[in-house]
Amino acid sequence: MEITLDINGDRQVLDLDPRTSLLDALRHHLGLTGSKKGCDHGQCGACTILVNGRRINSCLTLAAMHEDDEITTIEGIGRPGHLAPLQEGFVRHDGFQCGYCTPGQIMSATAMIEEAREGWPSYVSPSLEGDIELSDEEIAERMSGNLCRCAAYTGIVQAIREAAETREAAE
């Protein structure tokens, strides 16, 4: 079936098997291999992308369901030489080793920081109401949908904490 997708600001028309996941459409039909397939079942988070600004597992949705949506992948966040601050933070704090979960971590963190700014509580928030302060525990809980088997969690939390503080200070 013919599907039109809006990815990183570009309109893409594809002829796809309806079974094609959004992740496979990105990786195998559009050459956007930054989004990774680690489990194909929403259990690792390596395929995390943004749809209309919200983070989702792109492996657990059909490409056909996302016409008219605004899709952002890691390729739309920054590139070498023009990295986003969060990406630079991951490099500086060594928030990765093999690099395979990394684009998913960064996409997830990008949206997560905004979720916290909107005041969304988490399971570890002391109160369900009021502003959210992104403590290490808050960051860790909110990032627990992104597995890292190299276990660079210490650097990941540091990079996100720094990016969130920078974002806050810029206001």
Binding site: N57, S108, W120, P121, S125, G145
Partner: peptide, 28 residues
């Protein structure tokens, strides 16, 4: 989970939702 009325009036529901799955999955 983030709806103001749910957080205020039905916190057991907010907490249950937030205990489940992950940020990505809850968004879907």
């Amino acid at each position: 989970a983030a709806h103001p009325d749910v957080r205020r009036d039905y916190p057991v529901l907010s907490r249950a939702l937030l205990s489940g799955a992950t940020g990505q999955l809850r968004n879907k």
